[in-house]
C-alpha cells in the first residue's frame, strides 16, 4: 500500500472533529450518542494506523477493548435514553436538567 499513515490520521482527525462538533452543537440525546460513537471510531482508526506502522498487535488489542466498551456504553446509554423518554417524554438535553443546581 502506498497510502502513508498521514492520510489515515487525517481521516481520523476529520471524523473526530465531526463527532466533536455534533456533540457540542446538537441537542438530541440520540444524535449526541451517535457522535460519541463516531469519535470512538476515529480513535480506533488512529490506533490501528499506528499498529500497522509499528508492526505490533498492541493497537489491535486496544481497539478491541474500545469496541467492547462502546458496545457496553450503547446498551446502558440507550436504556437510560429510553427511561428518560418514558418519564419525561423528551429527548432534548436542555430539558433534562433535574440534577442541575
Amino acid at each position: 500500500m502506498t497510502i502513508s499513515a498521514n492520510w489515515y490520521l487525517l481521516l481520523a482527525a476529520v471524523l473526530f472533529c465531526f463527532g466533536l462538533v455534533g456533540v457540542v452543537s446538537r441537542r438530541n440525546i440520540l444524535v449526541v450518542f451517535m457522535c460519541v460513537e463516531l469519535m470512538l471510531n476515529a480513535a480506533n482508526l488512529t490506533f490501528l494506523t499506528f499498529a500497522r506502522q509499528q508492526g505490533t498487535m498492541n493497537g489491535h488489542a486496544i481497539a478491541f477493548f474500545v469496541i467492547a466498551v462502546a458496545a457496553a456504553e450503547a446498551a446502558v446509554g440507550l436504556a437510560i435514553v429510553i427511561a428518560v423518554f418514558r418519564t419525561r417524554g423528551t429527548l432534548w438535553m436542555d430539558e433534562v436538567s433535574t440534577l442541575k443546581n
Partner: peptide, 10 residues
C-alpha cells in the same frame, strides 16, 4: 466515511 460522518453531525 467523511460523507457519512457529516451526515451524522449535520
Amino acid at each position: 466515511t467523511v460523507a457519512g460522518a457529516a451526515g451524522v453531525a449535520f
